[in-house]
């Protein structure tokens, strides 16, 4: 199973959900595949899950999906005890775990290539529905449940290390433009003003 084919099966399921992404190849792959206005790709390791938690708390009627990676989550493990205690039912977390730090030139093993079991860490932090999937059919099944059910789900997706994202052209929409698109979409669909500064 690789991340791209997981995204190919996840993208058609996205309707009005909000998708928060972190960094790594997943930002490039998801960004090239989905131009959904509800995407917020924060482009930083260790930040997407926290942003997703914040969104899920203040928009309880909206399903929020956080796309994380093993390296990004390992950088922000402090999120898991908080997530377990808050238990937002409208949040689904997918961690694409390829067991490496994979940049444009590097492939160095992450802790999950060793003894670390992220779903186990999540369960020990009180996240009841934390599981690991290793094949595409299992991913599709967990993704469908995560999007349909009103319960916090945390799905670690063991994926192959791939380099396909290195061949995808990077976006020319900068982060402020990306953020404005997301916020204006939310303002329109939630019927409320979010950015309050007026000229």
């Amino acid at each position: 199973m690789n991340r791209y084919e997981c995204f190919e099966s996840l993208a058609p399921l996205i309707k009005d959900q909000l998708v928060v992404g972190s960094l790594s190849g997943q930002r490039v792959e998801w960004g090239s595949m989905s131009q959904h206005e509800g995407n917020l790709l924060v482009a930083a390791m260790g930040a997407a899950l926290g942003v997703g938690i914040g969104l899920s708390l203040v928009l309880p009627k909206r399903k929020v999906i956080a796309l994380e990676s093993d390296g990004s989550l390992l950088l922000s493990l402090y999120n898991l005890p908080t997530l377990g205690n808050l238990n937002p039912p409208n949040l689904a977390v997918f961690v694409f775990d390829n067991e490496v730090y994979s940049g444009t030139r590097i492939s160095e093993p992450s802790a999950t290539a060793g003894k670390t079991d992220l779903a186990g860490v999540a369960r020990s932090c009180g996240i009841e529905h934390a599981t690991t999937v290793r094949d595409l059919e299992s991913f599709k099944r967990e993704a469908a449940k995560a999007l349909e059910e009103n319960v916090l789900r945390f799905v670690v997706c063991k994926v192959d290390q791939t380099t396909g994202h290195r061949q995808i052209q990077r976006p020319n929409e900068d982060l402020w433009e990306h953020k404005y698109r997301f916020v204006r979409y939310l303002e329109r669909t939630e019927g409320k003003e979010i950015f309050k500064g007026r000229g």
């Binding site: 926290g50 942003v51 914040g54 203040v58 922000s76 997301f182 939310l186």
Partner: peptide, 23 residues
């Protein structure tokens, strides 16, 4: 809405999500 966290970096990221979500 008052949210306790384990780390101030986390506090910033959660506040960022809340802020972009309209609170």
């Amino acid at each position: 809405m008052v949210v306790p966290v384990a780390n101030e970096s986390e506090a910033v990221s959660i506040a960022a999500g809340a802020s972009l979500g309209g609170r």
